[in-house]
């Protein structure tokens, strides 16, 4: 799988390692939709979790996709700038990305291009700032 990803995405694949049943990869934002679509073709149908965290110098948006048949995890980490970040939305590929992406927008301020309804979800619409930024 790692080899396949590497040959297909080349430079866009920033890093890749296998930890137990988890395949952890880091990809550039632009390649995210293709990687996700590629993963879905290879059996990772289930978007277990989509979240983000503030690493201090940058944001990391983490997509965890699971293959329900084999139990393998694919963890895609996408680095993003701490302010004004824009990422492509995965909603066309995974319906389950809809609300988590809204949540990341709400709490971290990452905008997702192509999201059908990007509004705040947990906080009120008139909230200022994004509380999970450090």
């Amino acid at each position: 799988m790692i080899e396949e990803l590497r040959s297909r995405f080349g430079e866009a694949l920033l890093s890749a390692e296998q930890v137990g049943r988890e395949l952890r990869v880091s990809v550039a934002a632009a390649a995210l939709p293709e990687v996700a679509a590629f993963a879905k073709e290879h059996g990772f149908h289930y978007p277990a979790d989509i979240t983000a965290w503030d690493a201090g110098d940058e944001l990391r948006v983490v997509y965890r996709l699971v293959d329900l048949a084999s139990g393998e995890h694919l963890v895609i980490t996408v680095p993003a700038p701490r302010s004004g970040a824009r990422l492509p939305s995965l909603v066309p590929i995974f319906g389950g990305a809809d609300w988590p992406e809204r949540e990341i927008y709400d709490l971290f301020g990452v905008r997702f291009d192509g999201h059908p309804d990007l509004r705040r979800i947990l906080l009120t619409d008139d909230w200022e700032g994004h509380p999970l930024l450090k």
Binding site: H45, Y46, P47, A48, L68, F94, G95, G96, D98
Partner: peptide, 8 residues
């Protein structure tokens, strides 16, 4: 399929 796709 819908359920899996939505993370149910």
């Amino acid at each position: 399929e819908l359920g899996v796709n939505y993370g149910a």
